[in-house]
Design a binder for these strands. Structure first.
Lengths: 183, 183
DNA sequence: TCCAGCATGTAACGAGTTACATGATTCG
DNA sequence: CGAATCATGTAACTCGTTACATGCTGGA
């Protein structure tokens, strides 16, 4: 079994909104949904092939210009059923994160370790940038109250990620401030 | 290249504190450091072999009882150098988390989706349990002010994880409370 | 005409999980 | 003496990243 194939559900979910090509899906992983899911095209194309073999999606070929063939994928009713089943089922496993910075922290023994201030500052910088990015995303994607009620789940995700980064930044600031001063 | 081998550094870091067997390391991944890093013994043993081939660790064989051979691994000075280099270097990549629940949320279109309350409640339950677990861990592992200054990094990690779960729980509660009431 | 971007695939590899496999020790 | 745990390994497989490979299109 190894691991639970979640990529298939992302793809089914996106195709459930509108027909897309593999290229479109890959772009989505870079942009629209890149905040919470990523995949390269080298994962996307084989997965599309497998989903089609299973009968969850089909494709039609469209021509751009003279002869560039695009495969536009559609979800089937079977695919929709699979998608609904997945969403409706429970999600009892919490994702374990493997944060390299946190791992490094574990090997810092004392609050006077001279590397601590730099390490925390670097993360503060990174997470501040991410926080700003998320703030910008939230106001671009959901500028009005009304827009938040359409695609409500997406709104919740962005707002949740924003809060998470905000906590991370605050924690880094407080931890930095609480370090013993140099003598 | 594929992916950055962080497991090697966890092992080096643990061996830098005291000599351990593969079995001990595997137990540590289940217990002491399981909050922020996990690995099965099927990953640990081959990694130990590779680390020894590279000269970062050595092992001595000890006998338990009549003939049970245990391989007790020690870090070498080369290994210590590698470890220090890794810790001291920057950590500029933020870990992207792939949370299945968050992914499902994305496909919920309206705040009136009947599945939302159950979904949020389930996560609230799970994250509350994790929060309590972390609270218990923190008070067991670091009962006194003094104990927090030894293994300061570990203290920071636990305290950070606690804050993170606390935010998650609060967010779930607030989101649940803000859902439109049933007519 | 050239170059960025569109479009689709495969190959090689490392990371991580589950399962298979074996044997020793300790304690009730 | 039997079961839980100690102890070490390998095999098979999936997930995910980087790199290789090819060709078309549209606009400056």
């Amino acid at each position: 079994m190894a691991q639970k194939n979640k990529l298939q559900f992302v793809i089914l979910g996106l195709l459930n909104q509108q027909p897309l090509t593999g290229y479109d899906l890959t772009k989505a992983f870079d942009h629209e949904i890149g905040e919470f899911w990523q995949a390269q095209h080298s994962q996307v194309y084989p997965q599309l092939k497998r989903l089609e073999e299973q009968g969850y999606i089909t494709h039609e070929i469209t021509i751009s210009g003279e002869k560039l063939e695009k495969k536009l994928y559609h979800i089937t009713t079977t695919g929709q059923a699979i998608l609904t089943t997945w969403i409706t089922a429970g999600t009892p496993e919490l994702t374990a994160t493997k944060d390299e910075f946190i791992l490094k922290l574990y090997f810092i023994r004392t609050s006077r370790d001279p590397r601590l201030p730099e390490m925390l500052s670097e993360q503060l910088q990174l997470h501040s940038e991410k926080l700003q990015h998320l703030q910008a995303r939230l106001t671009t994607v959901f500028p009005t109250k009304k827009s938040q009620t359409e695609n409500f789940g997406h709104y919740l995700i962005l707002q949740h990620a924003l809060g998470r980064e905000n906590y991370y930044v605050t924690w880094l600031q407080e931890t930095l401030a609480a370090l013993p001063h140099k003598a």
